Simulated scan of single mutants.
Amino acid sequence: MDAVVWTAVGSLTVWLWLLLGQGFFWRTDLRLPPRRDPDDWPAVCVVVPARDEAGVLPASLPTLLAQDYPGRAEVFLVDDGSSDGTGELARDLARAHGGLPLTVDSPGEPPAGWTGKLWAVRHGIALARTREPVYLLLTDADIAHAPDSLRTLVAAAHTGGFDLVSQMARLRVESVWERLVVPAFVYFFAQLYPFRWIAVRGGRTAAAAGGCVLLRADTAERARIPDAVRHAVIDDVALARAVKRAGGHIWLGLAERVDSVRPYPRLRDLWRMVARSAFAQLRHNPLLLLGTVLGLALVYLVPPLALVTGLVVGSTGTAAAGGLAWLLMTATYLPMLRYYRQPRWLAPLLPVTAFLYLLMTVDSAVQHYRGRGAAWKGRTYARPGTVLDER
């Protein structure tokens, strides 16, 4: 029992440190920083990479075209080899809704060493640079923006002197599995990359949310975006790191009126979303994988197990340490559930969700070592050293 007690105490110690020493990652009050309107609104080009997005485009693209932006702005949608008529649908939506000018183009299949999305982004940025924009808004095809989204992003970047301003779009939470998994996804992301640390000049922490990234065009050129991150599966984090390495000042926070309209109704949809990049997040390192599995077990699985074990065998210390750790875990998760407008009773179930993420991470590694790499929308990016398999 001594080992069980000390393991429970170790988990409680980790939770006390996470509560106070990890950039207050659990707080959800970080929104766009204070801002004022510029005297002259700079030109902005919006770049939207899209592959087989006909299902979500009617709910997202019209919101971009309807942006209430006082300066010059236009939208470039780059059709990344879609087979569902994404490009033509985009043109139809532009004709029906009007608004900002829309250009639809396609770069063809990506060459070796490029992910499809980043190849599309590269093409979109090249088209945009002919308009000499001050800012580029990189946004995904499943992201719906409030009418003032662009102007508030630009005002925040202008006021704070940021080279990159990113908002983590509010993901859809409607199905049972989305309620269980999605808020935890953002919670875990914030735990890995505390938002308050990201905005610290000269700090090492860098991350962005790929669904909504406003980037200064000259900074993108200086940081060699996207060429410098052309192979990255987790492209938003890689992009932010490249910008920070180039001396850029970045900011990331939660969005209020920027929403993902992509549904993940089934567990396998969410599983695929997480597993496709989980092992890449660990740099394909088996030691990091082992450490992550043990860490997830210690931090999220030990507390409820210690509480139950302590109560069963009559070990007050084990039960107290496990119960307090579980209580801290639950308390830190409540703000994220409130942000997603979910019931509080989901908070104590975080160990269940963490166990699912542990399995997804292991599955990601298994697929990697089978040579499957990261698969998304018909493309499979093989692990380094293998032949690229695109289906």
Rank of each mutant, 00 (worst) to 15 (best):
D148P: 06
F162G: 04
R72V: 15
A207E: 14
E390T: 14
V313T: 15
L349V: 12
G108K: 08
Y381D: 11
G87N: 08
L294S: 00
A199S: 03
R266V: 10
R372Q: 11
D37S: 15
V243K: 10
R129M: 03
T205Y: 05
L127W: 03
L214N: 01
R179F: 07
L118N: 07
P110V: 02
P351V: 02
Q22F: 12
A331F: 08
V182K: 04
A199W: 03
T316V: 11
R341C: 13
V5S: 07
T103F: 03
P62G: 09
D79K: 13
R341M: 08
A59Q: 12
A375L: 10
A242L: 07
A325F: 04
D105Y: 06
M360H: 14
L65C: 07
A255V: 04
V308I: 11
D236M: 01
L153F: 10
A126R: 15
L307F: 05
P226E: 06
V293K: 03
C212W: 00
A208G: 00
D79C: 12
L282A: 08
L296G: 05
P343K: 06
L153W: 13
A374T: 05
W271H: 15
A306R: 14
L65H: 06
R262G: 04
P286M: 04
A365W: 06
L239R: 00
R391T: 10
H158A: 15
D52A: 13
V75M: 00
I225Y: 15
V366R: 02
S175C: 14
R170C: 05
L89P: 15
G295M: 01
A90I: 06
L294I: 01
S60N: 11
M273H: 00
W41Q: 12
Y135F: 06
D227F: 00
L127H: 03
P286R: 01
P348H: 01
P265D: 06
A184K: 02
R95C: 10
S364F: 07
F185M: 08
V134L: 07
